[in-house]
């Protein structure tokens, strides 16, 4: 249940952004979350919404874009989606590859109210 710690990091970052941009309220926080991060969107939403009560972020919601895991094969160069986290190249069956997508845990945008 590290979603609470992650929600708290989001609140900190968004609060700082609001301050530096002179925003007094916020409607939406856009997140990009890769499937390799083990973050459960529902637990994160719950943590976030609980945390922002009585803060300048109150009433804002999270818009979460989930990204599937992708890798590139070091042997044959094929880019492939690692369905069910199986990192075997569908072309040459090599297990030697690099993750190119799926580790994202990013704040993409804010939407003012």
């Amino acid at each position: 249940m590290h979603e609470l710690s992650i929600a708290s990091s989001i609140v900190e970052t968004v609060t700082a952004e609001m301050l530096s941009r002179g925003l007094t309220s916020i409607g939406k926080v856009g997140l990009r979350i890769g499937a390799l991060t083990n973050v459960d969107p529902e637990a994160l939403r719950f943590g976030y919404e609980t945390m922002v009560v009585d803060t300048p972020l109150a009433g804002s919601t999270l818009e979460i874009e989930s990204l599937p895991v992708k890798a590139i094969c070091r042997k044959c160069g094929l880019s492939f989606e690692a369905h069910d986290f199986i990192f075997i190249c569908p072309n040459c069956e090599s297990g030697d590859n690099e993750v190119t997508q799926g580790q994202e845990l990013e704040i993409a945008f804010l939407e003012a109210d």
Partner: peptide, 12 residues
């Protein structure tokens, strides 16, 4: 509504 690009890692 205005969308403001942030592009920041949550655990930065």
């Amino acid at each position: 509504t205005d969308r403001i690009a942030i592009e920041k890692k949550v655990l930065s």
